[in-house]
Each structure stands twice: as structure tokens, then as C-alpha cells.
Simulated assay, not measured.
Amino acid sequence: MTDAVPDEGQSGSEPETTDSLKAFGEVVKAFRKRARLTQETFAPRVGYSVPTVASIEQGRRFPSDDFVEQAEVVLDAFGVIRGTAKHLTRKPGLAKWFRQWAKLELKAVTLYTYENRLVPGLLQTPTYAKTLFEKQLPALGDDEIEAKLAARVERKKLLTDRPHTIYSFIIEEHVLRRQTGGPEVMREQIDHILDICARRNIDIQIMPQTRGHHAGLDGPMRLLETLENKWYAYCEGQENGQLISDTKVVSILQKRYARMRAQALSAEDSVSLLQEIRGAL
């Protein structure tokens, strides 16, 4: 994202299509024609607009899980549409530079995130995320916002789908005090973070504003460990991201993150501060 949305590799343009998306679109189109439906008659049956159906059939739009299921049922596709969807290779709404990291996240056994700009994507509520997308510059179209929001919601499933992964988040206090979207949006967002704090495999720490200096002042970072115990890092700017595999650089970032964990509030004190911030909204 560009800030308004600097997190999760969100660019202002729609990512390019892939062969798997084109193939999926052709399958949907073939079954639609087999059912003797036009795009105009098919779209309301699956609950999507005609332009959305057209984009999916042309391989320019990543289909949601709901679209896949509705198309399978409406077109009586013998499981072909569901089966084809399993082989789609492009994540919706993800910028090119973020996709390799997103793939690594899916199998990470350890995932660390430090953020000083906004609530990390894995912790965002849909309302908070939608606010960021709606305020992004250059402005996004409704379809782009929908695609990016779907990507964000899909990626958040990591926290529930991988209960044995160890997650650590360090967030700057000012991020939580900024009323992004207004008090109501932030109350919902902080309530969501408080709920996540209760999970045994997730640590959330707040870096207090009173901490005059800490080891993360060079900017946001992410670190992850794979099943093979290989560590990677990821850093992102306005319109680019860098996946880091150099062991020396990763080691430096690990040391900085470890120092930050000692410099931030404890998990228990972070919960107390979150409750205080929420009460002041």
C-alpha cells in the first residue's frame, strides 16, 4: 500500500493476469454458454455485477470464494469450477513485490511484525482496512477496493488457520491513538486486537510514546521462519517491497527485533494500555 495504505504490498493498480486466471475465466464462460445464459442473465443469479463477471471471464479479476461456489451451483458444473479455482495462482489485490512474501507466510512457523505506520494487515478489521483503501491516492475504483479488501480478509485467516505458528506484533502507540476512520472504527479495531491478545500463540506489544529511542527507528520490518528453519525478512516502502534472504542482513534485523521486544511494553501492560486508549475514544 501507499500510505494511506503502506502495508501488505498493496499497489494502486490491479495486478496483472495469469494463465490460471485466464483458464478459470474460460471455464466459467464455457459453462455459462452451455447453460445458455448471457453475462447479463448470469450475473444476478450469482449475485455479482455484469462488469465483475466480465472481468472474471477475461482473467482480469480474481474470483471470490462466494463467486466460485455460486457459479458452480448455478451452472451445475460437475465440480469443475471448484476444482479449477483450487489452481489459481494470483492472490487478489496483492502487488507483485508482495506475493513471494505472502507465499512464505502461508507456511511460516514463526512470524514477527513491527509496524509504525498503521495497524498491521493481519490485525486489521474489514472496516479499518476499507477506510485505508477508500482514502488511498491515487483514488481506487469500487472494484479495486473490493479486490483489495477481499485479499486483506483472506490473508487474515492465517491467524486462525495456523494455530501452531508463533506470531509476534510490535505496534507503535501513536498508531493506535490515531483515529483512523473515526472513534467508532478505532473502538472496533482495538476490541479486535484485544480479542486476538487472548490467543496463546500470539503476542502483541505496544511500543510506548514515552520510549524516546528504540531499535526499530529505521522503519517497519517483518521476519519469518520456514519449516526448514530458514529465516527471511521483508521491508516495504511507498511503491516497492524487498524480500531479504541474506543471512547477515536477516541476523541484524533479528537482533533489532529482539531488542525491541525488550524495549516495548510487556504483553500484559500492552493490554492495559489498549484498554486505556479504547476508553478514551
Rank of each mutant, 00 (worst) to 15 (best):
residue 137 L to F: 08
residue 53 V to R: 09
residue 106 L to C: 06
residue 93 G to P: 07
residue 26 E to W: 04
residue 103 K to M: 09
residue 19 D to R: 04
residue 75 L to T: 06
residue 22 K to V: 09
residue 156 K to R: 15
residue 139 A to P: 00
residue 103 K to W: 08
residue 36 R to I: 00
residue 11 S to G: 10
residue 154 E to N: 15
residue 180 T to G: 11
residue 189 Q to D: 05
residue 112 Y to S: 00
residue 71 A to V: 11
residue 100 Q to C: 12
residue 36 R to M: 09
residue 169 F to D: 09
residue 256 R to I: 06
residue 105 E to N: 07
residue 1 M to S: 11
residue 196 I to A: 07
residue 5 V to D: 08
residue 149 L to W: 00
residue 135 K to V: 06
residue 198 A to T: 11
residue 85 A to Q: 00
residue 115 E to L: 05
residue 22 K to Y: 06
residue 179 Q to I: 11
residue 185 V to F: 06
residue 116 N to A: 03
residue 123 L to R: 03
residue 261 R to E: 08
residue 272 S to G: 04
residue 58 Q to N: 15
residue 202 I to Q: 00
residue 155 R to W: 02
residue 271 V to N: 02
residue 28 V to N: 04
residue 121 G to I: 03
residue 176 L to C: 08
residue 44 P to S: 05
residue 233 A to L: 06
residue 81 I to D: 02
residue 144 E to S: 13
residue 67 F to H: 00
residue 238 Q to V: 11
residue 72 E to Q: 08
residue 238 Q to C: 09
residue 206 I to K: 13
residue 220 P to T: 11
residue 257 Y to P: 04
residue 84 T to V: 06
residue 148 K to F: 01
residue 123 L to A: 01
residue 181 G to W: 00
residue 86 K to T: 14
residue 127 T to I: 10
residue 126 P to E: 00
residue 41 T to Q: 12
residue 90 R to K: 13
residue 104 L to Q: 13
residue 2 T to C: 01
residue 32 R to V: 03
residue 196 I to E: 05
residue 27 V to K: 09
residue 225 E to T: 14
residue 178 R to H: 09
residue 88 L to P: 04
residue 219 G to F: 03
residue 139 A to C: 03
residue 264 A to Q: 07
residue 53 V to K: 01
residue 99 R to N: 08
residue 105 E to K: 12
residue 23 A to C: 10
residue 104 L to T: 03
residue 245 S to E: 15
residue 10 Q to D: 02
residue 59 G to V: 00
residue 10 Q to I: 12
residue 169 F to N: 11
residue 57 E to R: 03
residue 99 R to F: 02
residue 154 E to G: 03
residue 151 A to C: 08
residue 231 W to D: 12
residue 49 S to N: 02
residue 248 K to Q: 04
residue 178 R to G: 07
residue 121 G to L: 03
residue 39 Q to T: 03
residue 133 F to P: 09
residue 202 I to N: 03
residue 107 K to S: 08
residue 202 I to Y: 00
residue 14 E to A: 13
residue 281 L to R: 05
residue 89 T to I: 10
residue 99 R to Q: 14
residue 111 L to C: 04
residue 24 F to V: 06
residue 4 A to P: 14
residue 41 T to L: 13
residue 36 R to P: 02
residue 277 I to T: 09
residue 18 T to I: 06
residue 226 T to N: 14
residue 215 A to G: 02
residue 33 K to H: 11
residue 93 G to L: 04
residue 236 E to M: 09
residue 193 I to S: 10
